[in-house]
């Protein structure tokens, strides 16, 4: 770590990590949202406009992307969380932004439980064709994961606005 800090400042290092975390979050948000749309309102046949094309993409094709983004995203978040706890949360508490603190605490819980759902999510979407026995659970599990990612993204963004990149 000292070698890195000889080249860039500690603050810049954490800001770079936060930016990578944000970039991964955007990619994950895109993938899980498109999958949730495809699974909630599937297109009956491929058609003309952009929205119809999104709906026509086989939802199973998003699964490897979602898993491959979710896991490193959580690991990245666990690392950055150290900085959040000491550098961001303390000023939040001192200035009385309790609702943001509470919302971020909820984000920890939501992300952790979402991570534990990934093996089942992956399992339900495996196989060609996917197991029809789990069609309803598969659909709502995807929607639940989309909620997890959206909730986490919004709260991460609020925390970043309080004290992060560009704030």
């Amino acid at each position: 770590m000292d070698i890195i800090f000889d080249i860039i400042s500690v603050n810049t290092f954490w800001k770079i990590l936060l930016f990578i975390h944000f970039t991964l979050a955007v990619a994950l948000l895109g993938a899980i949202t498109l999958q949730a749309v495809a699974v909630l309102v599937p297109a009956q046949q491929p058609a003309g406009n952009f929205i119809d094309h999104v709906r026509a993409v086989p939802p199973a094709s998003y699964v490897p992307v979602v898993v491959a983004l979710y896991v490193p995203q959580v690991i990245m978040g666990m690392w950055i969380y150290i900085k959040y706890r000491t550098y961001v949360r303390i000023p939040m508490e001192q200035t009385g932004h309790w609702s943001i603190v509470a919302a971020f605490d909820a984000k920890e819980h939501v992300v952790a439980i979402g991570m534990a759902l990934l093996p089942a999510y992956w399992c339900f979407w495996r196989g060609h064709p996917v197991n029809p026995e789990y069609s309803s659970t598969r659909k709502w599990l995807t929607v639940l994961l989309a909620f997890v990612v959206w909730y986490s993204f919004i709260n991460g963004h609020v925390a970043n606005d309080f004290r992060g990149v560009g704030s």
Partner: peptide
């Protein structure tokens, strides 16, 4: 998991409303 979100969210209610 939805029940867990509700319970954990409820446990944060005091912090939310502080």
């Amino acid at each position: 998991p939805i029940g867990a979100f509700l319970l954990l969210g409820n446990s944060l209610k005091q912090l939310f409303l502080r």
